[in-house]
Design a protein around this nucleic acid. Sequence first.
DNA 1: CGTCTCTTTGACAGCATTCAACGTGTGTGG
DNA 2: CCACACACGTTGAATGCTGTCAAAGAGACG
Lengths: 232, 232
Amino acid sequence: MQAQTALAARPTLPAVASIHAKSWINALDEGRDALRAVGGVQHFGQDQEIYADGDAADVFFKVVSGVVRTCKFLSDGRRQIEAFHVDGELFGLELGGERRLSAEAVTDCSLIVYRRRSIEQQAVTDQTVSRQLFQHAMQSLTQAQAHSLLLGRRGAAERVAAFLLDWMGKASKGHSLHLAMSRQDIADYLGLTIETVSRTLTRLREDDVIAVHRAEIRVIDRAELEARADAA
Amino acid sequence: MQAQTALAARPTLPAVASIHAKSWINALDEGRDALRAVGGVQHFGQDQEIYADGDAADVFFKVVSGVVRTCKFLSDGRRQIEAFHVDGELFGLELGGERRLSAEAVTDCSLIVYRRRSIEQQAVTDQTVSRQLFQHAMQSLTQAQAHSLLLGRRGAAERVAAFLLDWMGKASKGHSLHLAMSRQDIADYLGLTIETVSRTLTRLREDDVIAVHRAEIRVIDRAELEARADAA
DNA sequence: CGTCTCTTTGACAGCATTCAACGTGTGTGG
DNA sequence: CCACACACGTTGAATGCTGTCAAAGAGACG
């Protein structure tokens, strides 16, 4: 069970700037301004808590820039990261009134804040909105199921390879990728320890599948990486 | 990697009986008949395939009786069961046109079949329907996240204990429960092997936490079971 | 009563974790 | 500018949990 660095105090209610909606909301918008009732934009510093398990879930967020992790803590300190959220992705939407996960800023980040009541009211009259929310829920579900498969039935090498490919899809420039998160974050996402992640990356480097320098990774042999992501 | 008994041939298009909607649909209905455009009821025998990964996702289902498992197969035969669905639960709703999981009958079961196009059309005019679909998606998401936590960060004893408690919630009569599924199913749901599941149950029996006789289980010490479900 | 399948139990191996030590990069202060 | 401390990452050795292989019990069925 690995310790996880406890996070800094809650954010000192960040500045809420009114925004020029058009540019921000296009991912949740099918072209029209389906989500005008936004509360504004908030900024969070690295490792700052966005919300905690048990908080009231009266708002949800869209990532404008930076990376966010959503996670669950066990009583003994173990942590499971459910997902990393990047540019354009929604997170923090709940069915009940209470958060079931915590959310923290992996890097400095800017988020649009949506007031849940406002959006729910809009959804009543605007089919576009309710459709967007449904699609978001279903996409999250698909991703959570893929995550379960990874955690339940794959070895360390497969998990790390799959993670690199997944992250390449989210945040790559060509064959190079920047790991915004720490090894500990990766370990807690993959259900491994930091040492196993490190060893696995070393193995991939030794086998000339990737090149590693701190958080910078270059994929040398993508085919091999893909092979290792679902090998026996 | 455990072998999974390949399933019988595809269902020979089961009898589609028109139904008296009122009694069946109440879980997806908020009291009114929000989902009238049902295709009917289908019956499946034990271990029969309901749909396969890659199939066209033009319908979805609600369990009337029996138990259904949704799962994913890896190329080498490993299987991950995503969820068991019981009486009243929806499954098989997809965002894209293709199935991402397979579904199979754990026991003989009866399912209501909903035609996706019909429901989508209803959702356009009836807020109740789109709301139901959203709620279903969010509930599935919550459960999938809980599953990820289980698979990523818990030992065998915790997984089995958590499973028993979960199943007690779904299908218990007092302190007795009937495991509708095989040990192999449990193993594939928990990301363990059949042997580890068996040994863990034996340990719980030896410690007088439960009594086991084949598929029948009686919980003797629920507090202890709960303690083992999230111990270190 | 024999066969078949499912489950349990045992012995052993293997992979990931744990514990520990050693880099490596960054920031701070002398 | 260098020395030191600190956080993060890597590497090594040993332990332990779970998987693998194997065989024996236990019902179900003919």
